[in-house]
């Protein structure tokens, strides 16, 4: 076969593969949205769930999902940023570093149920925190850390060495160079990593069943003092998320319209993830433009 025909064939095959991937994605999205959206209403989005049957609105769960996400990110971003910077910039190339890398890889391959049970035994039972947002957030942090750390390390390493030399040659400390020069350039990559891991957190159910719990006590959305028991911001209250709710409605729920409920909740979940991704990207691009003065 000559080069021209090989090239043509390869292009066709690659295009077909891409079309298949896009097709599957579009089909899934369309299916979920078409079967779910008709059942989504304002009362569904803001209403509360009947604790016994699982029927009713998903207002609290929707809030819980976002709150858990924010809390998880608040814990995991600083830790993984530190770990990523260490691995990219400070770690020497020796057995200790490769041990750390292997440990991170092992951590990322843990099944979520195992992470959930671990969180249950340690935080919920041993530390007596109970089913709570904070237990869930810490369990999800275990999940997030390997992904985020790897991503941040790779984003930082991808920045040219010459940028580091430029910083150092001006008498900037290694730390200042890393934070002020390298990090801004690596920002788009890091935002992508955060968006990806946020998607995972949003859709995670198994690890949360045992840590954040399966109940969504009605909270008082007029009370924003995190210390109050009824406040939605209280990190020590049990908090069923949207993904857990979908699982629960389908397995333990006694609602007669369980299929509709879970379809609607799935549609809301997907839209929420899309909105979050979009928002994070816009924010990331905005920050990038601010720090790099690019258009």
């Amino acid at each position: 076969m000559n080069a021209k025909r090989t090239d043509f064939l390869a292009t066709v095959i690659i295009n077909l593969i891409v079309a298949a991937v896009v097709g599957i994605l579009v089909f899934l999205l369309a299916y979920i949205l078409i079967s779910g959206l008709p059942h989504v209403s304002w009362t569904f989005l803001t209403g509360t769930t009947d604790a016994f049957s699982g029927a009713g609105g998903i207002g609290v769960q929707l809030f819980n999902s976002f709150y858990l996400l924010v809390l998880t990110m608040l814990i995991s971003i600083p830790i993984s940023l530190g770990a990523g910077i260490y691995l990219a910039e400070y770690a020497k190339d020796n057995w200790r570093t490769s041990l750390i890398r292997s440990a991170i890889e092992v951590l990322s391959s843990l099944p979520s149920v195992v992470v959930g049970l671990f969180g249950f035994l340690l935080f919920v039972v041993k530390f007596k925190i109970g089913f709570s947002v904070i237990s869930g957030a810490i369990a999800l942090t275990f999940f997030n850390l390997p992904l985020l750390t790897r991503n941040i390390e790779e984003s930082l390493s991808a920045v040219s060495r010459s940028q580091r030399e430029a910083g150092l040659s001006l008498g900037l400390s290694k730390w200042k160079t890393e934070i002020g020069i390298i990090l801004p350039v690596a920002l788009p990559g890091i935002v992508t990593g955060i968006v990806l891991s946020a998607g995972r957190v949003f859709g995670e159910a198994a690890a949360l069943i045992y840590t954040a719990g399966q109940s969504a006590p009605v909270t008082n959305f007029a009370d924003w003092n995190p210390m109050d028991a009824a406040s939605p911001l209280n990190p020590f209250r049990p908090a069923e998320t949207l993904a857990v709710h979908i699982w629960k409605v389908n397995t333990e729920g006694l609602a007669t319209n369980a299929a509709q409920l879970s379809a609607a909740a799935s549609a809301v979940l997907i839209i929420a993830v899309l909105l979050f991704n979009l928002g994070a990207r816009l924010l990331g691009n905005f920050l990038y433009r601010r720090v790099t003065a690019s258009k």
Binding site: S162, Q163, E165, A166, I181, V185
Partner: peptide, 21 residues
């Protein structure tokens, strides 16, 4: 060394301006 580098500056082979204004 940071103090030293402020007195002895360096310009590199490839232009390496920061990704800033």
């Amino acid at each position: 060394i940071y103090e030293i580098r402020r007195h002895i500056g360096m310009v590199f082979q490839r232009p390496n301006p920061f990704a800033k204004s």
